[in-house]
Design a protein around this nucleic acid. Structure first.
Lengths: 190, 190, 190, 190
DNA sequence: CATGAATGAGCCTTCATTCAT
DNA sequence: AATGAATGAAGGCTCATTCAT
């Protein structure tokens, strides 16, 4: 028998993400994905159970990759602000460098499909950030607010800036990144 | 007297939005919409050119309604902070009262479909907010940043809180709304 | 709107039965049926819910038609043997004149699909025959056996003869029909 | 020593017959058979040329097994009625003990597939029965009718009783078997 | 205006079979 | 011998849309 070809799995995933970000979830069919991945439609089903499974796995892949990117170089011995800034910069870098993955993530996360995926929330990334937030609170740096609120003010503006950048509404250059970081910092610190 | 029955148009719109927020764009077909609206599939084409037109009109309707809701009671003679808070509260009230419309808006706005809709940016709402922002800058209240940045820090966290509320991740009660407002205010003011 | 075209429904049914008797249940697809009926595949679903429904309805149609044919001219005031013979002859005539319907019936009735159809046993035909059997028993003509046993010795050989006729293994002409009737009569009477 | 693993061949055959009697020919695919037989789809093709060949071989196996069972203990020196009864009892025993094989046989024999199988009519069973029939005729026991007619009245009711038994329409116990035998005997003898 | 009938194109998925190991 | 990977073709069914009334 032949051995499973991992490059095939990746070609399928890549093709799917590309099509979805370009044409939307609704207009992305299995056969279009197959064609774009240079594979028979039936081959997709060797690697994924069905369409829903494919989309879910795509979402998890993207999430894992971005989480990893966000923590690059992070070390929990760093001072709070320094660590916080590192993560912020990682996030910006990742968004700018991976527009397709980023757009796919946003589309999927805002569709009802997301409710059927296992949350798997406790990833390394979320944990690291939660720890950092707690440490910052203990040191009297961050406001004494619940984590969801903290998260809302940390992620949401950053992602919106990413979208605006890819839309051409603004250019998220180094200067703007720093400015946005300072605003976020003002928002969350005492 | 006009013959087109506006209640039918609204039934179609309502059914469509419900289905889309529940099942997603991909699983919402014209005939399902027709069935849910108690109407023949052909009837939809009396009111909308085709599916794309229907979706776009849906998006515009929702946007207009929410814009209107945000400005309820607003008057540009109000002091900056007061006006700002009024709008913030209107926004929270609207999100909480219209979960379906809100979810639809987010889903559509994060899909590639949004790029094909006429931007129609200069709505009354955006204009009022832009004016308020400019006034606040002139009065030395707001930071001297570009409008997109301002927008990112105003909308994004609010909408994320709305989503978290509908997800059950938090309860956006009055107290939390006020707290979030203060954080936003801290973020945007000097 | 257009009115439902009954000739279309019949064309579909006829095409389906033809294909099934020729190629078998397994090799008869909805699109082949559509093609043979000169109709779009989607049109079949205007008249039948799905493939299973189509097959079931086909089976019921064929059963109803044959039941009706068996009773042609029957009247429960006829003497037992006369009535019995009339039905026997009707059955032979029907089998010989409707080889396709007959073959379809046998194929379906011997497939597991038959278990999912509503039995609808109490048709006029079965009732008339059951009554005749009871009358014959009361008059001391038929053996005192349970109805299923009676049925087995009445139907089964007749149908097998029908099959053999269509197979070319024998010719079920008038003489053979009479001979077979006498054998059946010998079997069931005291 | 031969390499082909006969237990594998039998596992495939058994799985196939089970699936076909349960779900029907149309719903029984090669991969389902493979899965049920705990074998790779490709392995089936080691033992059978293709699907049609598999089905045909299945049919022949079943036929051979049943023929053999019918003749168990038979010896052409037995008196006609005794031999006839022995065969009848063998047939009943086999049908009751092998519901799956029996159902498969009926399904296949009533489908058009049967026409593509080599008839292979002159099996030991058919020969023995034909001889017995001729002997009975010569001895003035059986009616002077053609063999097909004889066959129709011998097999058909028996098999129908078997079906009714498996359907739950009756219980083919010893008593009923004897009764049915007597009816058959009445039908075929002078 | 409003509709159910009608449809070719396309959907997701599984099919029977072959390939490479 | 035995197998899982791989596939083009075909499966049943639904789609967005138009037609005829």
């Amino acid at each position: 028998m032949r051995h499973k070809d991992n490059s095939k799995r990746e070609a399928i995933a890549k093709a799917a993400i590309n099509l979805i970000t370009t044409n939307g979830l609704a207009d992305t069919s299995m056969s279009k994905i197959a064609k774009a991945a240079n594979v028979s439609p039936a081959t997709i089903y060797v690697y994924f159970e069905n369409k829903e499974d494919l989309l879910n796995q795509l979402y998890l892949m993207v999430k894992r990759k971005s989480s990893k990117a966000m923590l690059a170089g992070y070390d929990n011995s760093l001072p709070v602000k320094e660590g916080f800034k590192l993560i912020w910069e990682n996030a910006c870098r990742y968004m700018l460098a991976n527009p397709t993955a980023f757009a796919f993530h946003e589309q999927f996360a805002n569709s009802p499909l997301v409710n059927r995926v296992s949350r798997e929330e406790g990833s390394a990334y979320y944990q690291a950030l939660a720890d950092l937030f707690e440490r910052g609170k203990r040191e009297g740096i961050f406001k004494d607010i619940q984590p969801s609120l903290f998260a809302a003010f940390l992620y949401a503006p950053a992602m919106m800036l990413g979208k605006q950048h890819h839309n051409g509404e603004l250019v998220l250059d180094r200067e703007l990144q720093d400015m946005a970081f300072e605003i976020t910092w003002d928002a969350l610190t005492i």
